[in-house]
Design a binder for these strands. Structure first.
Lengths: 144, 144
DNA sequence: AAAGAGGGTTGCATGATGCAACTCTATGGG
DNA sequence: CCCATAGAGTTGCATCATGCAACCCTCTTT
């Protein structure tokens, strides 16, 4: 019995999870965002089994989220980089991080913040309506 | 070999995925957001195996994301509702939906949109810095 | 008395994960 | 020349998670 695919439903949430919803996948993407690009470094950073990491990287490359490119020949060595499609996952990681800071981490823990690389100022992410700049309220919205 | 827990790393993304990162979990939450609250309705809407749905609902209740409450006695019947912690997942679902619309669905498909329940106006979600209202740019941000 | 409806549970077969050991290419000593 | 090390995976095996279908239990309706 194959694990059921979520693709082909037409629901954008399901289609997305079909691509990045497997165990470890988003954490691999998170680490690549942090600048970790090589197999061994990812494996050590995540503590993931090597065969699973290999499978995830293959799938992410096949999905067009990561790109595998040589950074040395002789001996052949590869690194993984985000494509535009992969960088577009940034808002997903940010909202997951926000929720984790607010609801999953113990209250007294030092939260992970997002800071402007130039000014060092802390950035507080917020989801708004692009047209009006007002925050989204789930109770006042429907899907269509 | 138990599937490795992602908890206890201190990373808010990992802690979040440890709670909602399993197969089907976020789709259950999505359906509850859409107003589907009962076991059989969820099962039919998702096409998920009944034993797995039961397990996911138990876990979501244990995590404080859903609340199980009787909507009838004699015969005893239950429904699942979002808690505040669960409603806080809305931005996660919205960013997943946006990414799916942009990158996972075929270009010609009718996208799922977010509309204002009162005015019917289409809402375009955007992640900004709460302080300045400027969109977040992954290249100019660091984690700290 | 029989047939749903709602909300699950149980057993079984198969897939996905975790772990450790092993491979393969190439470079750097001694 | 021979061995050790590094990087990037692959292979085998054991165990967990998922999928499916059938079943259970409590009412209510016909």
């Amino acid at each position: 019995m194959q694990r059921k695919s979520l693709a082909g439903t037409g629901c954008p949430v399901a289609e997305t999870l079909d691509v990045i919803g497997e165990w470890w996948t988003l954490l691999v993407v998170r680490d690549v965002f942090r600048g970790i690009r090589r197999f061994d470094a990812l494996q050590e950073s995540l503590g993931i089994a090597r065969n699973i990491l290999a499978r995830r990287l293959r799938a992410l490359v096949a999905a067009g989220i990561l790109e595998k490119r040589p950074y040395a020949e002789r001996p052949p060595r590869y690194e993984y980089r985000l494509t535009e499609k992969g960088r577009a996952l940034f808002p997903v990681l940010v909202t997951l991080m926000s929720w984790g800071n607010a609801w999953a981490l113990p209250a007294e823990s030092r939260k992970v913040r997002l800071v402007d690389a130039e000014t060092g100022r802390t950035v507080e992410p917020l989801l708004v309506d692009a047209a009006t700049g007002t925050p989204l309220d789930p109770r006042k919205l429907r899907l269509a």
